[in-house]
């Protein structure tokens, strides 16, 4: 009987959290479409999520493309199809690796910081102070992060793709001898607009996931993960883990939907 009660409490607790998380997303969306938008804070968050992620995106993009260059050449050469290295690298990056790795990098670099910042504001009563000034915390804290993630993720993904494609070319073209004309012309022949749009849709949806999960975990830090510094650290860890898992799961569904 005790075990049944525990299972019931556990299930209800999870349902309650999921419901709260769902409502949080709805509120975030509602306040995004109802003006005013806090532009100063939005610009600050675009700088933080977008501009300050550039280095890590360039680095991961370049090395992902270079690895793809090696692996792609090795696999294709078995079939005598080295000429298709360009389309292979391009399609892999544009449709899959670009959006996913960019989203995971942004989660690790910016998402964790967003969760920690809002979590600290929550436990030090700064969020309460905002509310007591008659100001809406969603408008001040969540919406700028949400919009900034929506704006930055597709742009960072595009940069990741471009750097990755050139990384692949450096290996395939300069090191392994695939001609630059072959590499880029075959890519142009096989990569279609719908492939590029698939990457854009994915990166947009990943932007929603990162801002939603990280803001939620920070905002409910003292309620769902415990009090004080330990509560914030748990919230930050959960934000990164849950965002990453959701990105990969959602990527599967998006891929099967857009296949």
């Amino acid at each position: 009987m005790n075990a049944v009660r525990k299972l019931g409490t556990y299930t209800l607790g999870h349902l309650y959290r999921m419901g709260t998380m769902g409502l949080f997303l709805v509120r975030m969306l509602v306040y995004t479409v109802i003006p005013p938008v806090k532009f100063t804070r939005l610009l600050r968050q675009i700088r933080f999520i977008g501009f300050q992620s550039l280095l890590v995106i360039f680095l991961t993009g370049a090395f992902s493309g270079m690895v793809l260059g090696f692996q792609g050449f090795y696999t294709l050469s078995r079939f005598g199809s080295e000429a298709f290295l360009g389309p292979m690298v391009g399609l892999s990056l544009i449709k899959e690796l670009g959006p996913v790795i960019t989203a995971l990098m942004v989660t690790g670099r910016a998402g964790s910081a967003i969760a920690a910042e809002i979590g600290i504001m929550r436990i030090s009563e700064q969020v309460d102070a905002l509310e007591l000034m008659g100001l809406n915390p969603y408008r001040y804290l969540m919406v700028p992060n949400f919009l900034a993630a929506l704006i930055c993720l597709p742009l960072l993904t595009a940069l990741f793709d471009v750097v990755g494609i050139f990384g692949g070319y450096m290996i395939g073209g300069k090191l392994l001898g695939v001609g630059s004309g072959t590499y880029f012309m075959e890519m142009a022949n096989y990569v279609e607009m719908s492939d590029i749009m698939e990457g854009v849709y994915k990166s947009l949806s990943f932007g929603i996931i990162i801002s939603w999960v990280c803001c939620f975990k920070g905002f409910y830090a003292s309620i769902f993960t415990g009090f004080g510094a330990e509560g914030v650290s748990k919230a930050t860890t959960q934000a990164v883990v849950l965002s990453s898992v959701l990105i990969l799961v959602w990527d599967y569904f998006m891929t099967s939907l857009l296949f």
């Binding site: 030090s124 009563e125 700064q126 007591l132």
Partner: peptide, 19 residues
């Protein structure tokens, strides 16, 4: 609620200044 809160001032125990 926001209108009521605008009439209030609250001094928090830890200050709750935006750091």
């Amino acid at each position: 609620l926001r209108a009521l809160r605008e009439r209030l001032g609250f001094l928090f125990q830890g200050g709750a200044l935006f750091d």
